[in-house]
Write a protein that binds this DNA or RNA. Structure first.
Lengths: 175, 175
DNA sequence: GTTAGCGTGTTATATTGTAACATAGCGTCA
DNA sequence: TGACGCTATGTTACAATATAACACGCTAAC
């Protein structure tokens, strides 16, 4: 809650796929800390349930479905909430900009730049299943450009890129 | 089936949103003609059912859901096929590159460049509900660029842009 | 005319998402 | 303090989207 959180450098703020064997616990911790901060700024409440759901989204770097979260909640806490409970928590987290929705998978994953208004693209590795968020400035400009040519006013955009991450491509791509 | 179809200029090959009051029947006709050609080239069969589904996808320039297609089939032809029937036809049309899927809507709409291997973006007008396909070369380059920086190998991409089309923005945007 | 392969039909069910209403917690202010 | 209002969560029921698995029939090739 103190000011030192404002620029806490960490794995979660790193664009791209994290290295194998990275300290994932700190990804989660950072995400929760950032969420606390963002909610405080926005005057909203990161309740216990919402925090739990956020942690479950951050359980790995693979996008996670709403019903998978529901399962994990059941396992972790013994109670099994009904779907609306999970969807409402996810809606909240989406509104606060703490998670993103991946349309092509009907799944969610943790935002790596919480609290910053930002446009982004999602890279999805079809081998390992992980997702990574990368800044979308360049793509956004390209989108705006072609839209403008048609008199189309851009409100928001979804860019999801399927392919293989460096780790899955093997040593050849590690350069 | 004759060679004159190969370059039939038409509304369907126009990128962007068609003008209000355009001759939509020719959009549909062109789409079916192109489908015949593509299937002939690919050695696949545009069966009656598949043609019907394609026509229903082309019923308007708004993306259409699988169950809406199912409804229309029921109305148009008296019989009500089960969901797998429609999904199989849609899968076929997707494979042949005759329709696109809009992930953020769970809906489908007709490809305006059938038979050409192409990368594209989808513009979705949140006012009138219409979709338009536009060439995605610029966006594709931007996507490749940021992916390459992370050693990510792009296979395919989904770019969906929400906003307002020129018609819906009114005269100010008609310039 | 038999047969292999493809396309479609059919049944059942899985997966994802929401509407609508009930209950509970919690701060505020008369 | 206790009634009120607001937000969050619980609960029930259902809607919307999608697929698995197996049956049947057509047709093209031999």
């Amino acid at each position: 809650m103190t000011v030192k959180h404002r620029r806490a450098a960490s794995a979660t703020t790193t664009a791209g796929f994290p290295r194998r064997g990275h300290n994932h616990a700190s990804c989660v911790d950072d995400a929760v800390a950032a969420a606390d901060r963002v909610c405080a700024q926005n005057g909203t409440r990161l309740t216990e349930l919402r925090r739990q759901v956020l942690e479950l989204v951050w359980r790995s770097h693979e996008p996670v479905g709403a019903y998978a979260i529901l399962e994990h909640l059941a396992v972790d806490s013994g109670r099994r909430p009904a779907p609306p409970t999970v969807y409402r928590a996810l809606d909240f987290l989406l509104e606060q900009g703490l998670v993103h929705r991946i349309e092509s998978r009907n799944a969610f994953f943790g935002c790596t730049r919480p609290g910053e208004k930002h446009l982004f693209e999602i890279l999805l590795c079809t081998d390992c299943g992980r997702a990574a968020e990368v800044p979308g400035d360049r793509v956004t400009r390209a989108v705006k450009f072609s839209a403008a040519a048609l008199g189309f006013e851009v409100d928001r955009q979804t860019v999801e890129v399927m392919g293989r991450c460096r780790d899955c491509r093997g040593p050849a791509a590690q350069a």
